[in-house]
Every structure is written in C-alpha cells, then in structure tokens.
C-alpha cells in the first residue's frame, strides 16, 4: 500500500447500468465499486460481455439513453459525481480531464476526416488553439506517439495507416488535451500480435511520462501482469475480486480468478495442458440466481444458488466476492 494520496482520482460506488431492451431488462453492470489512485494503473479484467466496456462508457457518460440507464451508484471523478453533471460540464471534462482509447481504431476514428482535422478539432475546442497552432501541436503529438515523419502523415486518412499506426493516432487524439486520466478499452485486442506489445509499451510509458492515471480494460491477464498496479476481476456484471496485482496473481481468492489464471499458457513448462473454465458465460438476459458464477464453479454450494456474495476484505486491500470465505474455508 504505497499510495498515501488522500483522494482517489476515480471512485466507482455501486455503479449499476441497465439496458431496457425489447426482450427485457439487462443489467450489464451491477453494483460495481472500485477506486483508482492518482498515478495508478488499474486493470479491469473479464470475458467479453462481463460489463467492462459498459463500465468504461458509463464513466465517460457515453451510455446511450434510451435504452441505457444508470439507476444507482456514483462515479466520483476527483471527488465530484460525474453522473450529476450537466452535459456542458461533462463536455468540459471530456478530452481535457478524462480521455479514452477505443478497441478498434479503424472504426473509432472518423473515416472521412484527415487525422489532423480530427485531432485539431479537439485541440481547438478544448484549448482554444488557432488552426495553425493546432496543426503544429498535432505534429508534436504524432511524433510523441512514435509516428514516423508526422509532417507527411498529417493529412492522411485513417484507412491509409496500418493497424498499429492507427492505434497510435487514437492515442495521440486521446492525449491531445493533456487529460490526467485515461481509459484504455482493450487497446491492443484488435491489433496484430506483433504490434500488441509495442502499443502496450507505448501506452504505459506515456502514462508514466505524463504522470497520468489509467483504467486499463482487457480480457488478457498477461497484459494486466505487464501493465497494471491494481486489478479488478469482473464476471457477469459484478466485480468478483479486487486487489493489488501481486496479490491477485500469487494468491487468487475467487474461483473465477483461479480459473482465469489456470487458462493462461505458461512458458516455464510447469503445466502440460491448459485448464479451461468449465461451461460458458451465462446469458445476461436470464442470469443465474445467487452467485453468477455458481453454474461453472467447482466449489458451488447451496448458498451460492440463493445469495449473491458480497465483496469482502480477505487481506488488506484484497477483496473477493465468494461464499467460500464466509465459512473461513479460504
């Protein structure tokens, strides 16, 4: 517990996001709470559909309403609740204080505007730069994220870049107005394996260099091991385990986390076979009762079917939501 900063940059408190769909209500994020300290990198891990991206969008207030709604919870950014802000206050926050890097840069960047147009629009809106100043700043940003001969690439369109270069452009755009907090939603997933490490390295070095805090969303525990300080594991709209990276990897407390760790290939030759988690992710339209993980859990008990386990502190700063811990069996 090195962090002694009094107030976290971002604090989620019981955030719930629901979508009212024609087939019924879908709770995509259910009572999620965690905090990110200043300068910290927080990894939010989970399978597709676990609610990670929805959580990110809720923080940016990008959940479309309808069909989405946030019936309860708070998102405290530097102490004030984002959910209470007016649209204008929210706009003032976006880009300048919080920014986001999306998963698929090809679709997250506008296909019919040049890279310079898009980034400089953000600069001109947020920082009031002139056209020429913005253009100059875009060159700086592009070279900052490692795009070779940025002068020449300024007026290119997104489709004229390679996948890795696109994600660099995306990062340049997110960093353009010096936000203190960055959300990266699976920023390496859509990239070639060979590029993934480079982009990951770039993001973490940028964060360090600019003294930013980062919420890193991924389904890849390997990426978490590399980049994050603290980790939250999400399963079916709930946070099931929360703790420092070392704790999570060395001493996982939730059966789901254990399962995730067992399904990572290891290069040191300890295990011959991977152990996948049995079953598949539950249908979120009709989630199982009690603990969402119980149908796939080897340790499932009677109580797991009835009651949703609450997050409990197992060791200082290490929380898990599992009934196994109620009985002191962990």
């Amino acid at each position: 517990m090195a962090e002694t900063v009094p107030r976290p940059v971002l604090e989620l408190d019981g955030l719930t996001v629901r979508f009212r769909l024609r087939r019924g209500d879908l709770t995509a994020v259910d009572g999620v709470s965690f905090a990110i300290e200043r300068g910290q990198t927080f990894g939010l891990v989970g399978e597709s559909g676990s609610g990670k991206s929805v959580t990110a969008k809720a923080i940016m207030r990008l959940i479309p309403d309808p069909p989405g709604e946030i019936p309860s919870g708070r998102v405290l950014f530097e102490g004030s609740n984002i959910l209470d802000k007016s649209d204008a206050e929210m706009r003032a926050l976006r880009g300048r204080r919080i920014a986001m890097v999306f998963q698929e840069p090809m679709s997250a960047l506008n296909p019919v505007f040049t890279v310079c147009d898009q980034i400089s629009d953000a600069l001109r809106t947020n920082l009031g730069l002139s056209k020429a100043e913005a253009r100059e700043r875009v060159v700086e940003l592009l070279s900052l994220v490692g795009i070779p001969s940025p002068q020449k690439r300024l007026d290119s369109y997104v489709h004229e870049f390679s996948g890795g270069m696109r994600q660099r452009v995306m990062l340049a755009m997110a960093l353009s107005c010096n936000p203190g907090f960055l959300i990266a939603d699976e920023p390496t997933t859509a990239l070639d394996v060979t590029i993934q490490a480079t982009i990951l390295e770039l993001i973490t070095s940028m964060i360090e260099r600019l003294g930013m805090s980062l919420l890193f969303i991924t389904h890849n525990l390997g990426v978490v091991a590399h980049a994050c300080d603290r980790v939250g594991v999400m399963y079916a709209s709930h946070i099931v385990e929360l703790g420092d990276k070392r704790e999570i990897f060395a001493n996982p407390q939730h059966p789901y986390t254990v399962g995730l760790l067992n399904s990572i290939p290891r290069l040191d030759g300890h295990a011959k076979y991977l152990t996948p988690i049995a079953g598949s992710v539950c249908n979120m339209m009709e989630p199982p009762s009690g603990c969402k993980f119980h149908p796939r859990c080897a340790h499932a008990m009677e109580v797991c079917r009835r009651e949703i386990p609450r997050l409990k502190e197992i060791a200082p700063g290490h929380l898990a939501a599992c009934h196994l811990h109620d009985r002191g069996t962990a």
Partner: peptide, 17 residues
C-alpha cells in the same frame, strides 16, 4: 451507432459538432 461518434464525444466536442 458507429464508434467514431463516441470518440468525437469522448474528446469533448459539442453534440452539434
């Protein structure tokens, strides 16, 4: 419904823009 719309919002551009 495309993601670039959210990107434009996420950098603080006005809804009109």
């Amino acid at each position: 419904n495309k993601e670039y719309v959210d990107t434009a919002r996420s950098v603080g551009l006005s809804e009109g823009k």
